[in-house]
């Protein structure tokens, strides 16, 4: 029996496999090449700049030399907060990173669910609601979380909530955009059947659409948690007590062993959540 025939639907490659599409693909590739040439000309890219100077080489050698020997103790006179040891401080910074990521994700989830529902055509579908909701989601998303951080720091001054909101605002926009798309791509058959049986729009949405969009939405939230961890770590460069703060401080003091310690802790946290969300995605896909 020819089982390969049944590999068809899961192969997932019907996109553009017809011969006539070669022209379109060729055009896109040519446009990309042209864009690349323009960009390289505009930036006056010089491959010679890719070779580090003498100081650069020394720094790279010193830095990479510590890759397999991360520090276990502080390398300088600076002892961190109080009498913490380095691993303890790295752990504290990791916890702070998770705290900032989780709190901002929870705020973003509230905003994203509300804006996503309003921006989905399947709940109300009235353009007077959908268009402003989508516009707002896109505007929130179009400003990077670090720019939100700069704006909010200028407006409100230092404070941990500032960092949380700086991440939450663009993430709410992204979640709203993706949630709306997921709900709109849900097959409408069940919703239609409910409607024919006399269901109100809210019932139609709650029982016909939401249950089928929910697995994808859940998987996406976990992926955004991983992204939020990265954003939270980077916000440390603006003075918040996450991993980025200590990493930058140690690097600027040339304590490369410490830098690697923080890098490994960051990698550990992110890879763990990466594994978690990947496993969740596989479970939800079956």
């Amino acid at each position: 029996m020819n089982l390969e025939r049944f590999a068809g639907p899961r192969a997932g490659l019907p996109v553009g496999s017809r011969l006539g599409s070669v022209g379109v693909m060729g055009l896109i590739l040519a446009a990309l090449a042209l864009a690349g040439v323009w960009a390289a000309w505009h930036l006056r890219l010089d491959p010679g700049d890719l070779v580090p100077g003498q100081g650069g080489w020394r720094l790279a050698r010193d830095f990479l030399g510590r890759a397999l020997r991360p520090a276990w103790q502080f390398e300088g006179p600076y002892q961190g907060h109080g009498t913490d040891s380095l691993p303890w401080q790295a752990l504290r910074a990791a916890v702070a990173t998770v705290v900032f990521a989780a709190t901002s994700l929870s705020l973003a989830l509230v905003g994203g669910v509300v804006l996503g529902f309003l921006g989905s055509t399947s709940l109300m579908g009235r353009p007077a609601v959908v268009v402003p909701a989508r516009l707002l989601a896109n505007l929130l998303r179009a400003v990077h979380e670090l720019i939100w951080a700069v704006l909010l720091l200028a407006a409100l001054g230092r404070g941990h909530l500032v960092a949380v909101i700086a991440i939450a605002l663009p993430y709410a926009g992204t979640l709203a955009k993706i949630f709306a798309e997921m709900m709109d791509e849900t097959p409408a058959d069940a919703a239609c059947a409910l409607e024919l049986a006399g269901a109100t729009p809210v019932q139609r949405f709650l029982y016909g659409i939401l249950p089928r969009a929910l697995p994808d939405m859940t998987a996406y939230v976990f992926y955004r948690f991983e992204c939020a961890l990265r954003s939270a770590a980077v916000l440390g460069f603006f003075g918040f007590p996450t991993l980025g703060y200590y990493l930058a401080a140690s690097f600027e003091n040339l304590y490369y062993g410490e830098v690697w310690t923080y890098l490994y802790v960051l990698l550990g946290v992110i890879l763990a959540v990466d594994w978690w969300s990947g496993r969740l995605r596989r479970e939800l896909a079956t």
């Binding site: 830095f63 954003s231 980077v234 460069f237 980025g244 930058a248 690097f251």
Partner: peptide, 18 residues
């Protein structure tokens, strides 16, 4: 897994300000 901003920060030190 490493954020772009951290990559850029590390590479700037090695390659200089280009």
């Amino acid at each position: 897994a490493v954020p772009e901003y951290i990559w850029a920060f590390l590479l700037l030190a090695v390659l200089g300000p280009t």
